[in-house]
Structure formats: C-alpha cells, structure tokens
Design a protein around this nucleic acid. Structure first.
Lengths: 173, 173
DNA sequence: TCCGAATGGTCTGTTTCGGACGGTGTGAGT
DNA sequence: ACTCACACCGTCCGAAACAGACCATTCGGA
C-alpha cells in the first residue's frame, strides 16, 4: 500500500491526467498528453508506462488489469493520490524553468549567429503559427488554466522570433 | 582514438569550455560554468567530473593526472576533439527548447492563478534584475555570442514578468 | 599549532529517456 | 471468409542525467 518515495513532477502530471479522465490506461495518458500538455512539455513514451506502476505501488493509484488480449492496466486515483494531487495544486511554486535552448547554447559558444538565426527562425515561426491558431480559438473569453498555458507559450514564441530576427539583421536584440 | 559513443549536448559544453581554457580540470569547468553558462543552463556537479572521463576514453580529450596530493585530472582537446567541436559549432541547429516551466504546468492543471502568479513574479523579478544589471555592462557595443545569450535570457524574463503580471491582475495575457 | 572553512574529487542509488522490439486488433481488398 | 498491412498497445534495455552524501587536501588565522 503505502511506502513513500518522493513524487516527481512527472508523478503529478500522471496524477492530474488520471484525475481528469477518472480512469485511464497508460495509452490514454499518452493521447491526453499529445492533445494538450504536449504543446509545451514532452513526456517520453516509456515514462507513461513506468510512472503509474510506481505510483500504484506507493498507494497513489489503484490498478485494474484486463485478463484477455492486451492486458491493459486501468488506473484511477486512490484517496491518498487525490490528496497528494490537491496538495500539489494548492501549493504555488517558485521554481522556474531554465532557458536550456540549444540554439542559445551554440550562440554562447561562438557559433556564427546569422545561419543559426535563420535556422531557428524557420522553426520558431512555424510553431508560432500553430500557437496563434490555437490562441484564436480561445477567443476573448477569460482563459482557463490550460488556455493560459497556451498563451504563455505564445508570448515566448513571439519573443523568440523577435530575438532571432534582430540577430539575423545583425542588430542588438 | 576509439570513437564509439554519441556526443550529447553536455559533451559539447565540456569540449567548448576546455577549448576556451586550453587546459582545464573538472573544477575549472565547474567555475567556468558558474561564471557564464550557468545563467541559463545548469550543469550538475557530478557531470562535470564524469563527462570528461568519457570523452577522454573516446579519444576527444587528452588526460594528464597529477601524482601527488589532489591527483587532479587536467584535460585538453585532441585533434579529434577539436574537429568534433568545430563541426558542432559550424552546424546551425533547428532544435528548440520546450517551455517546461513548473509554474505553467500547475496553471495548466488548474492551480489557482493568483497566488501562483505572485510567487512566480517575486522570483522572476529578482532574476530580471540580475540580468538587467548584466545587460547594462554590455553597453551599446555589438554583443558577443555569450552576451547575446544574456540578452536572450533578458527578453524571456521580461516576457515572464509581463505574463504573470497580467495573470495576477486577472486579465488576458 | 590547531581548527575550520574553502577547495577539490568520488561514489551510489534513482530516475530519465530514446529507441528497439514484440504482441494484438481490425478493416480493406480479395 | 481470409489475410495481410497497418495502426494500436505494451515492455524492455542500456546509456545518460541527477541529487546529494561523503571523503580528502589545502590554507588562513587565532
């Protein structure tokens, strides 16, 4: 039932997604990620299978296994899991992300700025287009949390495009 | 000499830093990181010792070991290492960073936006202050690659502050 | 001289992650 | 009805990342 290894960020992602779905298989989680979260936070395939198993072992999830065929595992939150999730959501975090951008890294170490800028621009512009499309669907209503996350991504993509455009022009960003 | 394993981003960080220093011990690298790169890309302690060892084994670095006392390892680039580094720097990358921001994650999953915003603001503002200070030292001259990296970080910090301020005010970002 | 801080280095247990690989269901064409 | 191709679903492996505890050396000052 309950030993308590520490819960990682990935753990809370899994808990949240299962909470939203009520009950879910790892594959459901994978699809759920690609539907929304995946726009700004990738969760590798293998983790989506490994993590629920650990969470079940620690008592945060209940597991029901199909007998025939695919032997899917269906997970849902236990009371303990729900409590942990609520606590996590209730606690605002002051952690923040690092930049950790491969393009910036090369720039830092002296890679030629112009070609780097144009390679980066083409991919950032494409991504910006996608996010703008998503943002348009939100419309003018007050955005939900998930929609705020999209808008955050949008702001940063705009910043990236602005930055690399300046670099491409040889101007001070 | 024997070239087997694939070079990771961390590998190129190590190669770059050693290239800049001419010759360096892991501890030198650690200090070098905290001097500049660390502003936007953390490299955990242990890696800075482990990675040069692997690179040396694969023939990218030469190793000289002190006999007495601390038995420091001094590394420098081999011809192979230099070639690999040049190739990496010459190749512009189209990879880009994900957002992967813990605050955005909580927002996405329905955490209450206001307290989250104020927690995030206090730390982002502080960081913004530091970067603005660094940026001022650059002055109006054309920035080096390392300085461009600082300016990129600055732009994103401004965006974070803008975003969370809007959220705190309950307005659409 | 001795103590404690700063410096410098190593080890261990977990977790992450990409990718290869292997089964299972299904429906389009025969 | 058959089967073959492809999408669906799950597991496994090894390399690397990572936190952080722990050990050893050097040095400055009371």
């Amino acid at each position: 039932m309950s030993s308590k290894p520490r819960l990682s960020t990935t753990s809370y992602i899994v808990l949240s997604l299962i909470d939203a779905a009520g009950e879910a298989t790892p594959y459901d989680l994978k699809r759920a990620v690609s539907l929304g979260l995946g726009h700004f936070w990738s969760v590798p395939h293998a983790q989506v299978y490994a993590e629920p198993e650990r969470l079940a072992e620690a008592g945060y999830l209940g597991e029901r296994r199909e007998q025939g065929g695919r032997r899917r595992r269906h997970y849902k939150l236990t009371a303990q899991g729900e409590k942990a999730l609520r606590a996590w959501l209730a606690e605002p975090t002051d952690e923040m992300a690092e930049l950790r951008d491969p393009g910036i890294l090369k720039l830092f170490f002296g890679s030629d700025p112009r070609p780097l800028a144009s390679a980066q621009l083409s991919v950032h512009r494409q991504r910006l287009g996608k996010l703008e499309e998503l943002a348009q669907r939100i419309g003018e209503k007050t955005p939900s949390g998930a929609e705020l996350a999209i808008l955050a991504g949008l702001g940063h993509e705009r910043e990236w495009v602005r930055f690399w455009e300046r670099v491409e022009q040889g101007k001070r960003p």
